[in-house]
Amino acid sequence: MSNAHVSLFTFISRQAVLAATPMILAGTGELLAETAGVINIGIEGVMLLGCISAYLAAATTGSGALGLLAAIVAGLIAGSLFALVGVIGRGDQIVAGAAMNLLAVGVSGSAWMLFQNARENANLPTSLPQGAGFVAFSPAWADHIPFFGPVLLHQYGLFYAAVLLAILAAIALRYTRAGVILRALGDSPEACEAAGVGVKRWRFGVLLLAGACAGAAGAYLSIMRTHTFASDMTGGQGFVVLALVIFGRWRVWGLVAGCLLFGAVNSLQQSLQTLRYTQHNAIMHAFAGLPFELFQMLPYVVALVALAILSRSAPGPRFLGVAWQK
């Protein structure tokens, strides 16, 4: 994108969409799982596993597509592991989710160190090979469309997949048999079982889907937006997603709005961090002395405030977090 003639507002909006994409992806998966009555607080960990898998696969094969595929497979494996413990084994979902996060930190940290050592020993370059990372679309014709061109058309392919997924999920939840079943799984699993719908099987399936989504979201972070891996690269986004699902009152459009809002706050705080040094006016001067961590903290504070305002009014799935036993 040619930045010269793009206004600050457009720039921040594009950054907001960029930041929101992985959260829309992972969030839609989590929303479907929660609708079916399963809460996975390990979504952050699944994203991190997606990050490392995508990076390792892309770096070793030189193919970004294989990287994305590896992240999705990692998400499926992590999702089925969680489902095995939380749905089939009826283990506590909160504890199992916390264990998934710990597992992801351990696995990704270990794999990253082993990989770096191997790469160093083989004297390979420390960046992704050419073509192994994705780049955003930048069609020249889109520049002529004011605002929407740069904001919505200069994006990564996965953004469009995320939007499509969100739309499909919203339609499916509302108008299809599968959607009715998913909602019933969360509100009245007994009725499902009585109607011949296998509660455990359906929940397992939706957790696989959620895992794949979170894995792909991880790939977005490591081989699309950046072409690197860092042990803290998910930075709590998977946890914020949990809050945003409540913020959106278990509705897809609400979730997407929350993700965009979060992305906007995030890109605003990033812009503020740079602006306070480059712009010399009274407001920016007041900000200049603050440690930048206070800005980084802002999105989480906003998420908390949003929860504080909305939590009471948002009755979620009745059996959220409760294991099903025949």
Binding site: M100, L102, L103, G106, V107, G109, S110, M113
Partner: peptide, 10 residues
């Protein structure tokens, strides 16, 4: 890597 201890715990 010492992170393998985290894997064991999880």
């Amino acid at each position: 890597p010492h992170n393998m201890a985290d894997v064991v715990k999880a």
